[in-house]
Design a protein around this nucleic acid. Structure first.
Lengths: 158, 158
DNA sequence: AATGCAAATGAGACTTATTATCATTATCGT
DNA sequence: ACGATAATGATAATAAGTCTCATTTGCATT
């Protein structure tokens, strides 16, 4: 049980909203009630959400506005998009709001769960990726590591 | 310069076709000339391709057939799909045909380049991922690790 | 080498997820 | 409170990929 990492914990609600507000205003965007509710929806659910997930949690949000706002928030570094190959994309809060983590992706039902690596492993990985990037004259921004397989729920059913 | 890994090299053409043929027939599929040309296109290009890339390389292939065949080949474990979030998905030969590797994804132009980790790092990562999966009662199939950033080409232009 | 039959093909219709449009409404600095 | 401007939401439009179905091909068996 217990945390497998010593990474900092996720931000609390007020701190989170303050952070998002800063990010948005610095790019001349407004932190409207709709955007607040969107951020709340992403924050309260522990896992990445699809558009249908979001409008189910917050039915007063218009789908077109949610898509537009996810894009704005993504550009401001508040939201991260996770491409799932087929079906809806998943969205979650970005790194400053959610500590660095990776994903368990169920190939059966598509659900995505967040997991964290031990800091030691993460560090080895980071250093090696930097080396590889420099060898290819590639300027790295961030990495993503997903484990694909059968989630506990689907594994029992199949 | 030299290989940063001791992994086995990619298969040669005849061996590759034999392998694909076996995989397809064992699932009652035929290895038609169209499928052969598709596999050749993926093999000759050193990097993952989109549908437009493929039909440009092999203009005699019908887009609908290519999509259908990519799906069949994916299910047979011959092709791997790389979801890119926006725009076209990328496709490459799967692991038995192309040795285990990861991707440098350019956030500017979308091009994807294959890279290999040192075996030592890959092993540390694999072991840790197995541990994490078992803690979540998750049955892992494979992992994907992508480094996102600016490729050498785009970095100069921006 | 011909036969038969199931699988594959290809052109285009269709679906689905997402993005653009635009008149109306809300937000924020003054 | 005011005014400029950004955001909203219903709907139209687009883009990527999937489905349909009449025709063709591949392959196992004569």
């Amino acid at each position: 049980m217990g945390q497998p990492t010593t990474s900092p914990p996720d931000k609390q609600s007020s701190e989170r909203h303050a952070f998002v507000h800063t990010r948005l205003s610095s790019d001349n965007h407004r932190y409207t009630t709709g955007r607040r509710r969107l951020v709340d929806a992403l924050a309260c659910s522990g896992q990445p959400l699809t558009l249908p997930d979001i409008v189910e949690i917050a039915p007063d949000l218009a789908a077109s506005s949610v898509y537009r706002n996810l894009e704005v928030l993504e550009q401001c570094g508040v939201v991260k998009r996770i491409a799932s190959g087929s079906g809806h994309a998943h969205f979650e809060l970005a790194e400053p709001l959610l500590s660095h983590h990776h994903h368990l992706v169920c190939v059966d039902c598509g659900v995505i769960e967040d997991v964290r690596l031990d800091d030691e492993v993460e560090e080895v990985l980071d250093q090696h990726l930097s080396l590889i990037a420099s060898r290819a004259s590639f300027k790295p921004l961030h990495h993503s590591l997903d484990l694909h397989g059968h989630c506990a729920n689907c594994d029992g059913l199949l």
